[in-house]
Design a binder for these strands. Structure first.
Length: 571
RNA sequence: CGGGGUGUAGCGCAGCCUGGUAGCGCACUUGCUUUGGGAGCAAGUUGUCGGGGGUUCGAAUCCCUCCACCCCGACCA
């Protein structure tokens, strides 16, 4: 490809709206242009990258035996009403009406449609297992679209759905997809980790996320330094402390803490470590108020809270509820002196093992110190894991300790089970002649998000550094002064022709720009391999090769350069 | 949704406080020179100052209103 025949839309300065490196670089390199909040057009250069990603995804999905389909992005409300998700999905779903006032949505996902296909088309266990997938545009009306393509409202997603006759088969299909995902992200050249995850709204038994590791990621991942254990922090279990609760050594004492409503404040005031304090959070579930206790330096894991018996569908308590149940205002709450008939005390495992701790006195401007379970207040009604793990916690698998890194979720696999097939009456004739609901799995990959994640992980101050498999062009040829030097011109043309003939994607910069412009653009765009051809080297019969990650150029004899580049790519 | 901010040329910004009909850099066009790290000189082009309404002799500037976009937060007491 000649640059003069292509459309490069590079920008010297990034539009004000961009915050993250990947967002800025995608705009500057001319991969995308913004249309509206969370809406992006893909420019020619971006399309080349997107096609690379799609191609690898397709190849690995096909290799895993999945079959490509394409379903409409506009879906009738009726299907969603069958599973109850028309209401459940809420404002995230973009709803539209046609001229006859019939309701539709712009698909945020396609479980309903694929299940509808399955119940109509799949009749016998003999047709199973099957896995259908599509690469299709989705729309989710995010609360706050941001980070460019990483949290856009419209995005391209590969979604696959497997149908099996029984759970064993489904788990096999799940494993196949898991393996395919590993192959996809490996081929893309990304540093990633599969982590076990919460199943969230979609439901089901097993679930793994595929996270591209990057400092700007929105997700926190806990992993063990001594085993394969890795989990989203939403799910990572915080084990109970290994050492039992120590015996009480201090008397309980009530002291004033005027205007100090936080654990940090009390710890500072009394010159105690934060880890000696306990914070109390009140919430309401099933009309009953619950006090949740977390160590001062820990944070509540809302997902874990929702899984505690009796707390399904909980909400934060109102100020009125707090006063009625605890006799004290928010900021000064604790487990001592409560009327347990009105309130249930739920302690995090860590808190349950604490002694001589500090907590609120259920009275404005007072806290207690030297508090001990059993002696000063009854034992907690319930002890549960309700906090987020922190770096240094023991790994839940018993091997090593946890460290925490950030990641960008680019893939997610779910062992769904019969949730959708049962809701929609999707059944098949089993071997014994009975009708059974399909065992389903669903598997997503954020195709457009991968592009942003790859840049987030691979860039420097000059621009993008594409992994070869995703690069819009693999090699850039930069002729110095081709307008003046016939030797430079013919050498560039010859190399271009040679590499093109070898099926290599080359960009020959024949725009006649100045050297600085050509080099800066090549670096911004992130073409991984470049060959600079100029009279300076040509008089010695050499040209310069430099990888985007190399600090220095390598002088290569002109006669060998084609072979040299091909050898570099073959690795 | 709550809070904050911004909207002036394709991009980045100044002008607004203290009203007088719009400017800078880059980009773009033409010419000459230049050509190994975002060139120089010269001559140009580009704006419904986000929309609507109001105040005023006069509004980018003051007031009201709507819209768009960005950032932070969304209950951790």
């Amino acid at each position: 490809m000649r640059a003069s025949q292509f459309f490069l839309a590079t920008l010297k300065e990034a539009p004000q709206e961009a915050e993250l490196p990947s967002h800025k670089l995608m705009l500057r390199a001319g991969l995308i242009r913004k249309l509206g909040s969370g809406l992006y057009s893909w420019m020619p250069l971006g399309m080349r990258v997107l096609h690379k990603v799609e191609r690898i995804v397709r190849e690995e999905m096909d290799r895993a035996g999945a079959l490509e389909v394409i379903m409409p992005p506009i879906q009738p409300a009726e299907l969603w009403q069958e599973t109850g998700r028309w209401e459940l999905y809420g404002p995230m779903m973009l709803r539209v009406k046609d001229r006859a006032e019939r309701e539709f949505c712009y698909a945020p996902t396609a479980e309903e449609v694929i299940t509808d296909i399955a119940r109509k088309e799949l009749r016998s266990y003999r047709q199973l297992p099957v896995n259908f997938y599509q690469i299709q545009t989705k729309f989710r009306d995010e609360i706050r679209p941001r980070f460019g393509v990483l949290r856009a409202r419209e995005f391209s997603m590969k979604d696959a759905y497997s149908f099996d006759a029984d759970e064993g088969g489904m788990l096999k299909s799940y494993q196949k997809m898991f393996d395919a995902y590993v192959a996809i992200f490996t081929r893309l050249g990304l540093t990633f980790r599969p982590v076990s995850a919460d199943t969230g709204e979609i439901g089901g038994s097993a679930s793994h996320e595929f996270q591209v590791l990057a400092d700007s990621g929105e997700d926190l991942i806990a992993y063990s330094d001594a085993s394969d254990y890795a989990a989203n922090i939403e799910k990572a279990e915080a084990l109970a402390p290994a050492t039992p609760r120590a015996a009480a050594t201090e008397p309980m004492k009530k002291d004033p803490t005027p205007g100090t409503s936080t654990c940090e404040g009390v710890a500072k005031l009394w010159n105690l470590p934060l880890a000696r304090t306990v914070k109390a959070i009140l919430l309401t579930a099933d009309e009953r108020v619950h006090m949740v206790l977390i160590r001062g330096d820990h944070s509540v894991n809302e997902i874990k809270v929702g899984k505690v018996a009796g707390l399904k569908g909980w909400r934060w308590a109102t100020d009125a509820e707090i006063l009625a149940a605890a006799d004290g205002p928010a900021g000064y709450l604790g487990p001592v002196g409560l009327d347990r008939s009105k309130i249930t005390v739920i302690a995090d495992r860590t808190v349950a093992a604490m002694s001589d701790f500090v907590c609120g006195a259920n009275e404005k401007d007072f806290h207690l110190r030297g508090v001990n379970w059993g002696r000063d207040c009854p034992e907690p009604d319930l002890v549960a894991d309700i906090r987020n793990v922190v770096a240094g916690d023991p790994s839940p698998d018993g091997k090593g300790t946890l460290a925490i890194v950030r990641g960008i979720e680019v893939g997610h696999v779910f062992a769904l089970g019969r949730k959708y097939s049962e809701a929609m009456g999707a059944t098949f004739a089993a071997e014994d002649g009975t009708q059974k609901a399909f065992e389903m799995g669903c598997y997503g990959i954020g195709v457009t998000r991968i592009v942003g994640a790859a840049i987030e992980q691979n860039h420097d101050d000059k621009g993008i550094i594409w992994p070869d498999p995703m690069a819009p062009f693999t090699v850039a040829i930069i002729p110095m002064g081709a307008g003046k030097s016939e030797a430079v011109k013919s050498a560039s043309e010859a190399l271009h022709a040679d590499l093109v003939a070898a099926g290599i994607e080359v960009l020959l910069d024949d725009r006649g720009e100045r050297p600085g412009v050509m080099l800066a653009d090549q670096e911004l765009i992130g073409i991984p391999h470049r060959v600079v051809i100029g009279d300076r080297g040509l008089k010695d019969g050499v040209v310069e090769y430099q990888h985007r990650r190399d600090a220095e150029a390598t002088r290569v004899p002109l006669a060998d350069v084609a072979a040299f580049v091909k050898a570099k790519l073959a690795r």
